[in-house]
């Protein structure tokens, strides 16, 4: 797995690429929490995730919970099919705000200002 963080549309966008499993989910977790701890709204882009296991999902859950505590916006964008089926398995597809793209997320933010 590799990840990149970029700044766009008022968000830190953490893009994860490859297999997110126990061997690398601690890195993903650090990347997500680091953006949030700097006070940035954060989105995780999962378009290039080929595989994710429970430890990867757990990193997303931690991000979601940290964002709520810090009153920051958090969500997932462009979720790959592989990642979506595992999110569904954890019944988390209805918990995380999930959007097809950053544009869709920004449009939704505009329609419902202050949404978390």
């Amino acid at each position: 797995m590799s990840f990149t963080v970029r700044r766009e549309g008022g968000y830190d966008i953490v893009q994860l690429t490859g297999d997110v499993d126990l061997s690398c989910s601690p890195d993903a977790r650090r990347a997500i929490l680091s953006s949030l701890q700097q006070g940035h709204h954060t989105l995780v882009d999962l378009r290039a995730v080929t595989y994710i296991d429970s430890s990867g999902i757990a990193s997303l859950v931690e991000g979601y919970q940290a964002a709520r505590k810090l009153a920051l916006r958090f969500g997932l964008v462009d979720v790959s099919e592989a990642a979506m089926s595992v999110l569904g398995l954890a019944q988390l597809d209805k918990v995380f705000p999930i959007h097809a793209s950053l544009a869709a997320r920004l449009a939704a933010d505009g329609a419902a200002p202050g949404a978390g």
Binding site: S54, V61, E62, A90
Partner: peptide, 11 residues
Amino acid sequence: DLRPGGLGTHF
């Protein structure tokens, strides 16, 4: 019970 851990067993 939304916690980061314990998902594996659920899976």
